[in-house]
Design a protein around this nucleic acid. Structure first.
Length: 108
DNA sequence: TTGCTGACCGACG
DNA sequence: CCGTCGGCCAGCA
């Protein structure tokens, strides 16, 4: 039974530590599907059908921009969640992104 | 079954 | 600098 694409995404995303963030591309690359970053985001969209254990708010784009914030049911919900974890968010963007960046290829 | 779309990224002109 | 296009995989009408 090989894990499907989504399955791998969930597996990695669910392991993102508190107060850390990663990028769609990093996850895609780690699971061996470099270029399918869009699918990572799509997997997050489908996360609604999964347990809340999936910290989708800790996944941002390459620029540290909260591109998927609108899918959290609000415009600032995602930002507030990150701020609540001790991160600095300004203008829908994670400050010190490189410092809080969690790369599965390195950390995992 | 076919075809379109999507929370991205990198390349090209 | 900015607009456009291709690639990747899965869900839905």
């Amino acid at each position: 039974m090989e894990k499907g694409f989504f399955q791998k995404v969930y597996d990695v995303a669910s392991q993102i530590p508190y107060g850390r963030v990663t990028s769609y591309g990093a996850i895609a690359s780690y699971i061996g599907s470099h270029g399918s970053a869009r699918m990572v985001g799509w997997a997050m969209n489908s996360s609604k059908n999964l347990p809340q254990n999936l910290p989708a708010h800790r996944v941002v784009n390459r620029n540290g921009l909260l591109t998927g914030k609108q899918h959290f049911g609000g415009n600032d919900v995602m930002a507030q969640l990150l701020i609540s974890e001790g991160l600095k968010v300004e203008d829908s963007k994670v400050l010190y992104f490189e410092k809080v960046f969690w790369d599965p290829a390195i950390e995992l």
